[in-house]
Amino acid sequence: MSLEEKVEAALETVRPYLKADGGDVKVIEITEDGIVKVEMIGACGSCSISPITLKTGIEQAILSHVPEIKSVEAINLTDTKEKNVAI
């Protein structure tokens, strides 16, 4: 299974919750240094708690399933302080 496939499989564990609220997440890039860049789409793109969803839901799912990944960043969240926090 490729790194991209592993990340997508991890995202499938949180997607039902995102979709239930009218949102989703799309992988834009996985960098050589282990950073997954995602785009929050639908309701998740404008929700005020998206930074929390990113860190406690999306990033935790990916990190627990794909140890090669170091962090997850959203390219479209306006609160840069939250989107670049490393856990």
Results as ranks from 00 to 15, higher is better:
H65N: 10
V85P: 00
C44M: 07
G57V: 11
E32P: 08
L77H: 11
V38G: 10
T78I: 12
G57T: 03
A74S: 07
T56L: 09
K19V: 13
L63V: 01
N76P: 10
N84E: 09
S48V: 11
E5N: 13
T53F: 02
I49K: 06
T13K: 15
L3A: 11
E4K: 13
D24I: 13
K6H: 15
H65V: 08
K55C: 01
S2Q: 09
G34M: 07
E29L: 11
V14D: 01
Y17D: 04
T13G: 08
E59W: 02
I52W: 14
N76S: 09
V25G: 03
T53H: 01
I75R: 12
G45P: 14
I41C: 14
T53P: 01
L54H: 00
E73Y: 06
E59D: 02
E68L: 13
I58V: 11
Q60Y: 08
I69W: 00
V27F: 13
L3W: 11
E59Q: 11
M1C: 02
V38F: 10
K83I: 01
V72G: 04
V25D: 04
E59V: 00
C44I: 04
P16C: 12
E39G: 06
V36D: 12
I69F: 00
V85I: 08
K83M: 03
E59T: 00
V25M: 03
M1Y: 08
V25Y: 04
V14G: 02
V14T: 02
T53M: 08
K19H: 14
K55I: 03
E12C: 11
K37Q: 15
I30Y: 11
L11K: 05
I49G: 03
E5Y: 04
I28Y: 14
V27D: 14
E12W: 05
D24T: 15
A43M: 13
A74K: 02
T56P: 00
I58E: 02
